[in-house]
Design a binder for these strands. Structure first.
Lengths: 342, 342
DNA sequence: ATGCACTGAGAAAAGCTTTTCCCTCCGTCA
DNA sequence: TGACGGAGGGAAAAGCTTTTCTCAGTGCAT
C-alpha cells in the first residue's frame, strides 16, 4: 500500500480534503471509502477499519453541501422569531439546539422584527439553502408572525406563537402555571390573594386569570395593566388605597403576570414598609433568571419550561423532515414553580 | 414555444423546481437559463427577459447547495457564543444579520456555554456545512472562548471577546464610554462623583475606572464588587455610611458599571430618601433597554453600540471570505450616551 | 462568391458524495 | 472439472448549478 505515501504528499495541495483524497490515502476506491465511513455496503472488516483510521488521521470530514444535494436533506433548520430581545427565544433556541445537535443539525436564527418584507427575505434565503424545516416562534402565544408559512415546501412547527390550522403548535400550559402559583400561595397559609397581570387582550392573561380564580376563589381580585415594572408599582398603590378606603384587610399574597411586574410590586411594598415574604408573599411568572434570581428577596416564580418546549419543537420538526407523521394540533407543556424566597 | 405548455404541466411533478424546469418552461437550454438569471453570458435581450419572467412566474429559486458546491461559497456564516442569556449576543447578532442579509448570507447561531466539547462539535458541524467564516463572540471582552479557532480553514473574526494574535477583533471603546458618562455628570454640575463597578479582574472595569478618574479626578472613589443589583445596593450603603463617619459630604453623582448595579443603586438611594436625579445623578452602562428604560426614573446609560459592532464584524468576515485582505488588530468602536432622566 | 467576425445559444465538465449495479475472484459442491 | 454462489470491491450515475468551450447562423467586406 505505498499508494498511501504518495497520497500523503498530494494531500498537501490546496483546499479542503475530499473523499478522493481519503480514498487515495487509504488505497481504496471512492465508493469503498464512502461505504466504509457510513457503515454501509459489504467489505472486509480490516478494510473498513483502515479507511476509518486514515480518515481520522488526515482529518477528513465529508462536505455537507454535496451530501445534502444528493440526499435532499441539508441537516439545517431555520428558527424564525420576532422576539427582538430574545427573552423567550433564547431559552427556546437553546432547547432546539440541544435536541438537534446530536443529529448533526444546525440552526439558522432569523430575527425578523415584525417586518413582513424582512421575514419574506429570510424565509426565501432559508428555502434556498434547503432547510429541512422551520420553527416559528415569537413573544406572544396568541399572535402569529407577520408572514404566512402555511404553504412552504418544508415542514413548519410553531412554538410559543400562534400557528395556522392543521399545524403542530407547542405552547406552555399557562393555566397550569397559574394554578401552581396560586396553590403554592394558599399552601403558605395565604388567604387574600390578588393577581396583578398584563393586558386582558392577551390570551395567556385570561387563561392565567381564570386558573387563578379557580384556585383563589371567584371574588379574588384580578387587575389588568401592562407588562411593566411601573404598572406593578402602581397596582400596589391602587390595591392598598382601595382596601384602606373600604376598611378591608389588604392582600397577603400577590401573583404577578410576569417578573417585571413582580419587581415593581416588591418595590412598592418595600416603600410601604411591608416585608416580603413575611407580610406579603409574591409569585412571578417567566422565571427570567437574570432578574428573578437577583431580586431582594429572590423571586419565587413560574418557569414556562421554554427550553423543553424548544427541545420538543426541535424533535418534532426533525420527525416531520424525516417524513414521519405527526398528529397536528396544539400541545401544551406543564410549567414548573421555582421556589425562591418571596 | 409550446414547449412552455408541456413544461407547465410537467412542473406539477414532485419536488422543488430545478433549472431544468425553468429551461424547459422558457424554451431554452440550461446554460442559457443560468446565464439569463445571473446576468452573465451573451444572449438577446428578449431571451434574457423572457427567462427572468418565466422564473418569476413559476417561482424558481436556485438551489444554494448546488451553487455552494461549485463556487465553494455557502453564503452562510457561523456565530459562536458562550453568552447564554444573549444579552450581548442578541444585539450583536442583529447587527451581523442586518449587514449580511443583503448579501444573501444566513447565520448559524451556536451557543456553546463554556463547554469545549460542545464548542468543538458545533465548529465541526459548521465546517462540514462549509461556512464562509465564523464570528466568535462572548460575554466578556478579556476572555476567549473555550475553544481554539486559530487554525481553521475559514476566516474568523472576534467581536466582544478576546481574539488570538494576528486576528481581527472588534470591541467597544469602554474608556470612551466611561469618559462620556463622567463628562456628562460633570456637565450636570455634579462634583462628587463615584464609580461603582464590577470585579477589578475585568479588563473593561479597569479601562473604565481609569477613564473615570481621568475625568473625575484622581481621588474620585472607585469601588469594585460584582455585577449584581445587590452589590449596587450594598455599595451605596457603604459609601453613605463612610461619608457620614468621616463627616464628609456624600456623593452627588454615581457612574455604575452596568445597568443592574444602577438598579440596585437607585433602590438604595430611594430607601435613604434621596431623589434621582435631584439629589444624585446616575449613569449606567450597557443600555440594557428592557431594564434601563423601565426604571423609575428611566436610566441614563452608556450604549456599547453592539449592533454596530455586529455590523462591522459581519462585513469584515464577509470581506475575508471573499479574499479581500483585512488589516489584523483590535478595532475599538465609540460608545454612545443615552440620556434619559436619571 | 468566398471568407471573416460576431452574435446567440447549446453541450459538457466540474464540484463532492452516495448508491446502485456490476465485475472478479475464490471456494464449494456435484 | 465445471458450475454456482457469495464476498470484496470498483465504475458510473445522479443530484443542481455555473462556466468554459464550441457551434451554427447572419451580415458584411473583399
Amino acid at each position: 500500500m505505498d499508494l498511501g505515501e504518495s497520497a500523503r504528499i498530494s494531500q498537501e495541495k490546496k483546499g479542503r480534503l475530499t473523499i478522493h483524497d481519503l480514498a487515495a490515502a487509504a488505497g481504496v476506491s471512492i465508493s469503498t471509502a464512502s461505504k466504509a465511513l457510513n457503515g454501509t455496503g459489504r467489505m472486509g472488516a480490516e478494510t473498513r477499519e483502515r479507511v476509518q483510521r486514515v480518515a481520522r488521521e488526515i482529518g477528513f470530514r465529508p462536505n455537507a453541501l454535496a451530501k445534502g444535494l444528493l440526499s435532499k436533506r441539508s441537516f439545517t433548520i431555520g428558527l424564525l422569531t420576532n422576539d427582538t430581545y430574545g427573552r423567550f427565544t433564547l431559552p427556546l433556541m437553546a432547547g432546539v439546539a440541544e435536541a438537534l445537535v446530536d443529529h448533526g443539525v444546525s440552526v439558522f436564527l432569523c430575527a425578523i422584527e415584525d417586518d413582513p418584507a424582512l421575514g419574506q427575505v429570510h424565509v426565501e434565503a432559508m428555502l434556498d439553502k434547503q432547510v429541512d424545516g422551520i420553527i416559528a416562534t415569537g413573544k406572544r402565544v396568541d399572535r402569529s408572525l407577520p408572514i404566512d408559512l402555511s404553504n412552504l415546501p418544508v415542514p413548519v412547527v410553531y412554538a410559543f406563537t400562534e400557528g395556522t390550522r392543521g399545524s403542530v403548535t407547542f405552547r406552555s400550559d399557562d393555566g397550569h402555571g397559574a394554578r401552581l402559583a396560586s396553590e403554592w400561595l394558599i399552601a403558605q397559609g395565604r388567604r387574600r390573594l390578588v393577581h396583578i397581570t398584563g393586558p386582558e387582550s392577551f390570551f395567556s392573561v385570561c387563561e392565567r386569570a381564570e386558573a387563578f380564580r379557580a384556585v383563589a376563589g371567584g371574588q379574588a381580585p384580578v387587575v389588568y395593566g401592562d407588562w411593566s415594572e411601573g404598572w406593578g408599582y402602581q397596582a400596589v398603590a391602587r390595591l392598598w388605597d382601595e382596601a384602606a378606603e373600604k376598611g378591608q384587610e389588604a392582600p397577603d399574597a400577590i401573583f404577578c403576570g410576569n417578573d417585571q411586574i413582580a419587581r415593581g410590586v416588591v418595590d412598592a411594598l418595600r416603600e410601604r414598609g411591608l416585608k416580603v415574604p413575611t407580610d406579603v408573599s409574591i409569585v412571578g411568572f417567566d422565571n427570567w433568571e437574570i432578574v428573578a434570581a437577583q431580586m431582594r428577596p429572590p423571586l419565587t416564580t413560574v418557569d414556562m419550561e421554554l427550553r423543553e418546549l424548544g427541545r420538543q419543537a426541535g424533535l418534532t420538526v426533525l420527525a416531520l423532515a424525516e417524513g414521519r407523521v405527526v398528529e397536528p394540533g396544539v400541545r401544551t407543556l406543564p410549567c414548573r414553580l421555582v421556589v425562591r424566597e418571596s
